[in-house]
Design a protein around this nucleic acid. Structure first.
Lengths: 367, 367
DNA sequence: CTGTTAGCGCTTTCAG
DNA sequence: CTGAAAGCGCTAACAG
């Protein structure tokens, strides 16, 4: 037992307050806990005593007996990533407003860490979990099922998981990607690079292979790829595996891949980037090759930011409703905790294409 | 008492495991809790029983009896801000590695929310607190003192608080700002805008007033302002209150202020921006005025990002060691929790000026 | 309306 | 090395 717990160590308990106020502990507990009936007089005395002693409730003890911790668990890929940071803000703003705090854990897209994180949350008895899972196949969702089996409500955010019949709050990735690529096509482009696609290990030679690989990757990556393909199909533009970047997703690789795509004989005249780092990586490649945007290569990317507006040229970007994504996820979870029980649903939030100046027709006779 | 706690609700307790294994609960607790001695045989039986029942320890109950929650509380201005997100990542990476999880709360620079957040953390019995406080004068630190009085170690991060003798982990804001402004001066600039300064309500007419206002604002703002002044003084450049932006800190106001500073008769030929939003705001103003950077106006700003490198021109920026800032803060706190007791200290991490191309000499004859 | 009495699930003496 | 028993601080019946 630790050296100094309780007593005069600066952490008075409800019993001490009761003693000080000269009432039974239940009475003190009732007034301090804000439940049950207490006469105004005693209430006053208790409050005064609590004030005097500097009493603060012990939420741990309360949780022990009520079985409710008023804490939500959040699992994301990387809390340092602006996207997830924005998501977190949405989550914490709305949960805080409803009396809940959040425990956040990052997995860095590693399934083992995701499992470990889930266990931490189970052990700490969070009341519910919001997770942007890296899981795809049914084989990888045991940890999520485990949480559910223990009675912990789970809502998926940002990434849906087909194997799980759960509430999911996501954005319209596929449509957003399709719209972006359609915009490029409408401007006259036919050789459009896709940076980046699923982080598969092999280099898919066919469309079928690519889709198969995507099915084993992040849900968002797959959706965005499908949107790209949708647009190509609608315009009857043949799919060329050479134009999609697969493998590890780093800014440096995006640069290298775009460099490759711009130096092929039948080079790209436009790029569609699925993430911020892909955008900056692509831009680096264009600059290094002395190619100008949008004159030589048009560009549209995911995840707008204040920077995109002040670029030269200002970039046409897709803006996801990040804050709302988190807020909605928290709302759905909290409603469930409060007893609501609507059928499970996939909540799809709409993204917005912010048109600026990084798209122009391809240079005539360029291909 | 809630409908279904304990029993067969999928949350077996240590007693149930003990029963299943046919041993006393203390024995089960010892093997599951990883303390005390247990014979290999019994240990095996307990483990098997736990496995079979799907036992997971109840960290809340454990915290109740040990008085340790293995949870750190973190209070920042805004978890959605990339700077704090990066900080959080540093904090959570190192604390997770040492077995601690983090409860994060945002205050949006509001002192009342900061107090409320501190109370939440006290109530939830976190083992320690890391805080980027908005408090400045000794009058506003009662909540931090309260936490300390309750035996909760606190370490300040990003912002020092003079009134508190605590460990603080910060970056060399003043030096970094001075170096940036010196760089501008070395290039030949004498009319250098400062965006943004302390968010005071009045418009300080003198240097003394400005400094007084800064003393009541965020610590970082004051430090950066002092660095600006240091550089000016060293070069014997007179201070002009017209060149510093004060008041609400928004990108839009930065744009307006820079527009004002560039259209004065004796206009600025360089700007020093203390934050990312100030940089994008300034850039917007330059573009709107048809001014080019660095030809017409040179620029250096705080907080480098991947975007800054792909801007036109690539921006010269100050890079703060964000991740390390958080990691160090967590480390200091955890060391304290583990009993270390070195004298309180101010840990100052060095920033780095990343020179790119947004600084050039002022146009000749321009002033 | 108030006080007494059990727990919540775990750790921790303290005997055996 | 093992088990019984007490206790962490609070909530929740249950009598008065």
């Amino acid at each position: 037992m630790p050296a100094d717990r309780g007593q005069a160590s600066g952490r008075p308990t409800i019993s001490e307050v009761a003693a000080e106020a000269g009432v039974g502990r239940a009475t003190a507990a009732r007034t301090l806990g804000g439940y049950g009936y207490v006469s105004p007089e005693l209430r006053e005395r208790v409050l005064a005593a609590a004030e005097k002693l500097g009493y603060r409730t012990n939420a741990l003890a309360r949780s022990m007996s009520t079985g409710v911790s008023h804490t939500l668990g959040v699992i994301v890929a990387d809390i340092g990533n602006p996207f997830f940071a924005g998501l977190m803000r949405g989550i914490s703003d709305t949960s805080r407003a409803r009396g809940f705090d959040t425990l956040v854990l990052s997995t860095y897209e590693d399934l083992d860490q995701e499992v470990a994180a889930t266990n931490v949350l189970i052990d700490k008895r969070v009341d519910g979990v919001i997770i942007a899972s890296a899981a795809t196949t049914g084989k990888h969702v045991a940890h999520i099922r485990a949480a559910m089996d223990r009675g912990i409500p789970v809502v998926l955010v940002d990434r849906a998981v087909a194997a799980l019949d759960l509430d999911a709050v996501v954005t319209d990735n596929r449509d957003a990607a399709r719209e972006a690529v359609e915009t490029l096509i409408a401007a006259g482009h036919r050789r459009i690079g896709f940076v980046w696609g699923p982080s598969t290990s092999r280099t898919p030679a066919t469309r079928r292979e690519l889709l198969a690989d995507a099915a084993r990757g992040l849900w968002t990556d797959g959706e965005r790829l499908r949107g790209y393909l949708d647009a190509l199909d609608d315009a009857h533009i043949p799919f060329d595996p050479e134009l999609v970047m697969v493998g590890p997703k780093t800014e440096a690789r995006a640069t290298a891949e775009v460099a490759r795509m711009t130096s092929m004989s039948d080079r790209i005249t436009a790029v569609f980037c699925t993430e911020t780092d892909a955008v900056t990586g692509a831009l680096r490649a264009l600059r290094a090759a002395g190619l100008s945007c949008p004159r030589d290569v048009a560009l549209i990317g995911f995840d707008d930011s204040a920077w995109a507006a002040v670029m030269e040229p200002p970039l046409t970007m897709i803006e996801q409703p990040v804050h709302q994504l988190g807020a909605k996820a928290a709302q759905v979870l909290l409603d469930t905790l409060e007893g609501a029980d609507p059928p499970r649903e996939m909540h799809i939030l709409r993204s917005r294409l912010i048109v600026r100046s990084s798209v122009a027709p391809p240079v005539l006779g360029d291909s």
